[in-house]
């Protein structure tokens, strides 16, 4: 079980936002709430982080120590991390061993490993068993578009069934990058989430979060999936005042913080909390409380 540590780096609401950037003195942090701005520490649980090297570009934060330092500096107290090796490697068992060891040895108590699973590989159920029993991972992260299956396939239902039995959090990465700039020889389409509602109806106890969803998923389908219990994160949420606009329709307990670091600048996600005028309750829910609730049931 993971606790929402309120470490020495936990920040007050005001300093929490200010560390995202050296914003100008003209910047005023506003809230729609009358609650005290310094009522207690607001921490960040970043639900969308990866370890390793992106195959197509050198990442400044590919080194785990540097990534952890960055996350700490920005006020994160916990990060759920998958492995970039999971996208293309076939020895997923080894990917998960390295992920677990790296989190343990270099994570400084901040990194929570989320296991890779490719159900198109022979023996994948053993990988899932090891995620739970060997590595004590609270969840699995899926890349259906990279691994070649659809969310309407029977194999995906089997994954959900096992995840439900094992009480695992399931993260599905809808995309990893903008389809317009993807490497032409690895032209991976976004995962189609349309069949997801039907699949979830069969496994209502599964806790599922979509990562990088908002580039391709907007409007009513988002609300429909939320009604089936799906959670989201904000890494690819765009549009001015985007978080506040989304929360006018989306239940407040369905949205988590996610940065997509190190592929994206962490500051992008954090500054979104400044751009939208959020109540104290919304800010806390989005920053950490929703994620904590999501993973605490694992």
């Amino acid at each position: 079980m993971i606790s929402p540590e309120t470490s020495r780096l936990a920040l007050s609401r005001r300093s929490f936002i200010k560390t995202a950037a050296t914003v100008t003195a003209a910047t005023i942090i506003q809230t729609t709430s009358s609650e005290s701005a310094d009522a207690g520490p607001i921490t960040i649980i970043d639900t969308n982080v990866s370890l390793g090297q992106w195959p197509f570009r050198h990442e400044n934060l590919a080194d785990t120590s540097a990534l952890v330092a960055k996350l700490r500096q920005q006020g994160a107290t916990q990060a759920w991390v998958g492995s970039l090796d999971a996208l293309l490697h076939k020895d997923i068992s080894a990917v998960n061993v390295r992920l677990a060891e790296e989190c343990k040895q270099t994570g400084g108590g901040l990194l929570t490993p989320v296991g890779a699973l490719n159900p198109m590989l022979p023996g994948w159920e053993e990988d899932l068993r090891r995620c739970v029993e060997v590595h004590q991972m609270p969840g699995i992260r899926l890349h259906p578009n990279y691994h070649g299956y659809k969310l309407g396939d029977a194999i995906f239902e089997r994954v959900l069934q096992l995840a439900e039995e094992r009480n695992l959090l399931v993260q599905i990465s809808v995309i990893m990058e903008d389809e317009r700039t993807i490497h032409p020889l690895v032209n991976v389409p976004a995962t189609d989430t349309a069949p997801l509602s039907n699949a979830l109806a069969k496994f209502p106890k599964v806790r599922l979060q979509l990562l990088n969803a908002f580039r391709t998923l907007r409007g009513l389908p988002v609300l429909s999936l939320a009604a089936h219990g799906v959670s989201f994160e904000i890494a690819m949420l765009e549009g001015v005042n985007g978080v506040a606009n989304l929360l006018e329709k989306l239940p407040a307990d369905r949205l988590c913080f996610g940065s997509h670091a190190p592929l994206f600048y962490f500051e992008s996600a954090k500054l979104k909390l400044q751009e939208s005028l959020l109540s104290e309750l919304q800010m806390r829910a989005l920053s950490s409380n929703n994620a904590f609730r999501l993973i605490s049931r694992a």
Partner: peptide, 20 residues
Amino acid sequence: GSDAGGRSFASQLGKVYGAN
């Protein structure tokens, strides 16, 4: 530049504040 309102100010400022 941001390309607001289609893009958020935040995501685009993040490119500058997050850069080494």
